[in-house]
Design a protein around this nucleic acid. Structure first.
Lengths: 209, 209
DNA sequence: GCGATAAGAAACGCAAAGTATCTAAAGAGT
DNA sequence: ACTCTTTAGATACTTTGCGTTTCTTATCGC
């Protein structure tokens, strides 16, 4: 309970109010999605009013990015199935599950606004491109495979570390539905595993040359 | 000249009118981008009125997809630089050049609407996922590399054929700017070439096993 | 308790969506 | 050439949401 007593008008301020608004935005996002999310609805849901929101954020995109930042998923332990393929399958499935419809609609929507608002583009790029717990997981999975001897030692460029998320996002954004298991299978077998072997082979050649 | 005499009210119909509207939509798209494109502006630009547009298309996304379909770029001859890397670099640069800001903003915008309108999702998926002149070019480049002995014979899954476009689009949509040469370099060297070698190696193993 | 700050309510002007109504022009059929 | 059907184009309307302004008053720091 945040309010005091029914009938009493209590007024939240500062961090408490901000959190209430971001919670409301996040709930709204989950319920109606980005494209139907309105500032007015968020304000109503948070029990506040539009100016309060506009005093803090520049618009929908920034508000949603802020709400997203407070609701980042907790990265689970890296999978350890005993095979590279198995670990990657688990990883890709996790990403696909996490990057569900709402998430992708949000990313698409924010992207759309990012083209007109450089500051939004900056925030979004930061969120998507930076090293994250996810890229650490990718690294761990590959390291484990190397340790087991499934792969030669291989150096992973940042872009390759980001690729799992990018691949899943692309799939699910162009299809409009979360990636199905068959898709995950294909991304692992047709793209990511061959890529890792290819990178390892190149590393080999350099080592030997 | 489409009109008759100045002052005379001529009325276009059918295909002629439709083309005028799609041209107007395309011009508008290039000038103000997807997010600022309004049906009213397109109608005004085409010298017609909103109801005429709504009679034909369901909304912005569908109108824009139709305009896009009439303005598909002509796929140039596959590059032939003599090396796989060179050809891929040329190809990726071409894609990056073509997939400029306007194009990506459009894709992002249409994607955003696709989540709510299944028919838009279908049209968009069709446009992005189908075999295209571009995938033919990828195949040709790889075939040439195989013929030169740069690569073992390799079978390319559809997803791999689409990957160049997906990679460029991802880059330029998350950064909000067209991919720079350095990015192209990295996509070719860090991702696509290793992937091709990895796929070829797998094919080898299967052939030999 | 006093004054500064900022929350919340209400209303505004604006833009654009999408719809409805009406007219008259184009084209088809006789 | 005349009629009839279709539909382009004009206009205006309702709705929705944006982003802003104004005003009151609750809350906090002192």
């Amino acid at each position: 309970m945040r309010g005091r007593v029914t009938g009493t008008k209590s007024r939240r301020r500062g961090a408490q109010l901000e959190q209430a608004i971001l919670d409301a935005a996040w709930d709204e996002l989950r319920e109606v999605g980005y494209s139907r999310l309105t500032i007015e609805a968020v304000a109503a849901r948070a029990g506040t009013s539009k100016p309060v929101i506009y005093r803090r954020w520049g618009g929908r995109a920034e508000l949603v990015l802020a709400a997203w930042a407070r609701n980042l998923p907790v990265e689970p332990e890296p999978p350890d199935t005993g095979t590279l393929r198995g670990d990657l399958h688990t990883l890709f499935s996790r990403i696909a599950h996490r990057a569900d419809t709402m998430m992708n609609e949000m990313v698409a929507g924010v992207m759309g606004e990012a083209f007109r608002h450089p500051e939004v583009a900056a925030l979004l790029g930061e969120r998507l491109a930076n090293p994250s717990p996810l890229t650490d997981t990718v690294r761990t999975i590959v390291d484990n495979a190397v340790r087991r001897g499934e792969l030669p030692p291989v150096d992973l460029p940042p872009r390759v570390l980001r690729l799992p998320l990018d691949l899943i996002r692309t799939e699910s954004m162009t299809c409009g539905v979360p990636a199905v298991d068959e898709t995950v299978e294909s991304l692992v077998n047709d793209v990511y595993v061959p890529l890792l072997h290819g990178l390892a082979a190149v590393g080999d050649a350099v080592d030997q040359g």
